[in-house]
Design a protein around this nucleic acid. Structure first.
Lengths: 340, 340
DNA sequence: TTGTACGCGTTATCAT
DNA sequence: ATGATAACGCGTACAA
């Protein structure tokens, strides 16, 4: 039980006041270089490390942030988290990571505990809270970046960072239409997903622009994982065998579509073309490799943390407070090679 | 900037002392039920939340723990993290998550920052620090659980939780031998991996027990990802075409082996049988689906946190301080179906 | 250049 | 059952 070494111990050992030690350690002026070095030396030898807790109480800043994701085991969010961490590390912030499991009640509980920890900032991904409840909780936090969630009302000290879902969906569906497909389905993910709803908008816009009718039976909700995609695709292909192209909510569901196609004897991409979303590592490892809307996940996380850092620094924002990430259509093997 | 509501504010509003408020909120005795309810009510209305920072300073316990993993984007560790979180949540601990990137220097830096945060406990996964440096750093922490890392010397207030690597490797190689394979290769992962070294021991033991010679050229080091597995397998299969079975460091490298086999025209499992380790979600999604040594990752994480909770509670341990998780051989499609 | 005294928000000790 | 007071470890005015 190595007794905690405090600044008082160091001061005593160095024969100076606590103040001098504090100044020396925090690189503030008012200490001669000689004593500073001596103090640093002694602190080092004693294994002194300042208490973030005490410092937090004194300064009212903890140098911690909260990162809330639906599920860190989802590679999409894991990569975002890596991006956040890379930037946080540079600026010396430590991260509380919490999983919300897409459960609004759980999300509330998480925000409470993060607030109790007095985090300096919060990055909240894919919040499933309704707007009023969400903004009410968020107002207490000094600085917030919302990822993958839009807000109707402006909240001070809050930025958002979103994927251009509509535009992305249009890219995918436009591609299908240009390739001559007329029966294009959308496996839409869960009803509660806001990005799913926006992708649906893009899907409809694209159909309309291409002069194709919208057919409700070609849009299927599903649990956003491989099993969900499989089930939805199996039902779809049985009931609407005329479908030749599927745009999927994400790569996990797209993988489910892939397996359903295989089980039903549909060749991919000849009989059925598929485009997913995210470009998680899995996408390039399944057979055939998934064509997908690539989202720069690490970069997204890094940008979120950079925004938060700017907010926390108190300086006026250099960038726009509400940003958009544009996905990029990545054609692999589940879309036919270009014919010419 | 909603001014922080403190216990003093609540006390003033309720017309009692801070102490009474504190007692009421912490369910301590010494408060009449009537005033307790009244205080709870008022605190609620004022939106009061106790400051973990101040509480941490006063109690010398922060109700936070540190979780260090090599890379949270690796699904193996992400699932362990979920296991840890599920248990932490129950006991009201909040988690600092840090990625070590398998970099010893980074690991040291992480341990420093976690110590500065005064975490109550630490779960450290796959430490790459040499024993003396590691134990020196760890002694400062009140309670530690080491995952996937053995220690020669005993450290007080420290438990370990490891995968039975040797035994697991033996299960896989024994299976190959029983199936009649005589040319069994091992794609061993990085030299620095201790579990890789232990799996190599198991591999050699199994060969010896089966009366098969050990051949150095059948053991290949590699970066532990798909690309590394691909490169190692491609070289191996070119130089030693007689190989009919490969035991791979993990599922990621096994997937690389799978792709190398496909590119070299080897049918799996007929020409080449493959067994990986971990059973990450990817394993069942590649084609053919990977046979693998399943490690119960969530359960591993949950057990680690349960151990830590027991340590932190101060009560004597109910379970053994050094535990082992036994992997389970899961036969899918990269091993031939049983012939009979 | 250096030191003193107080505050940060909460719990613990000791009274009342 | 309730309250006053002193920690907890550090930073910050202000003083020397």
């Amino acid at each position: 039980m190595s007794a905690q070494v405090t600044i008082a111990d160091v001061a005593a050992a160095a024969g100076v006041s606590m103040m001098t030690v504090s100044r020396a350690l925090n690189n503030k002026e008012g200490v001669s270089e000689a004593t500073r070095q001596r103090i640093l030396q002694i602190a080092q030898e004693m294994g002194y490390r300042p208490s973030g807790v005490a410092r937090g109480l004194a300064t009212q800043r903890t140098r911690t942030i909260g990162l809330v994701v639906p599920d860190i085991a989802n590679p999409f969010f894991a990569l975002i988290a890596r991006g956040v961490e890379n930037v946080a590390r540079i600026h010396n912030y430590t991260i509380f990571l919490l999983n919300s499991d897409e459960d609004p009640d759980r999300e509330i509980a998480i925000l409470h505990s993060l607030w109790e920890q007095r985090v300096d900032g919060l990055i909240l991904c894919s919040s499933r809270l309704e707007e009023t409840r969400l903004t009410a909780r968020l107002e207490r936090f000094p600085h917030v970046v919302l990822v993958n969630r839009r807000l109707e009302t402006a909240v001070p000290r809050l930025c958002t960072l979103n994927v251009a879902d509509e535009q992305g969906a249009r890219q995918a569906v436009d591609y299908f239409i240009a390739a001559g497909h007329t029966q294009i389905a959308f496996i839409a993910g869960p009803e509660t997903s806001r990005s799913g709803r926006r992708r649906l908008q893009g899907y409809r816009q694209s159909l309309q622009a291409g002069g194709l009718p919208y057919r409700a039976e070609l849009v299927r909700r599903c649990v956003p994982d491989t099993e969900g995609g499989y089930a939805a695709a199996a039902a779809l292909l049985n009931q609407c065998p005329q479908v030749t192209a599927v745009f999927a909510y994400n790569d996990l569901t797209a993988t489910g579509v892939l397996r359903a196609a295989a089980d039903l004897g549909r060749r991919v991409p000849q009989d059925l073309a598929i485009i997913g979303v995210d470009d998680i590592p899995l996408a390039s490892l399944v057979t055939p490799a998934l064509s997908t809307l690539r989202i720069a996940k690490r970069e997204l996380g890094a940008r979120a943390m950079r925004l938060l850092t700017q907010l926390m620094s108190g300086a006026p924002l250099l960038e726009a407070c509400h940003q958009l990430i544009i996905p990029e259509l990545l054609l692999r093997e589940t879309t036919p090679p270009p014919t010419r």
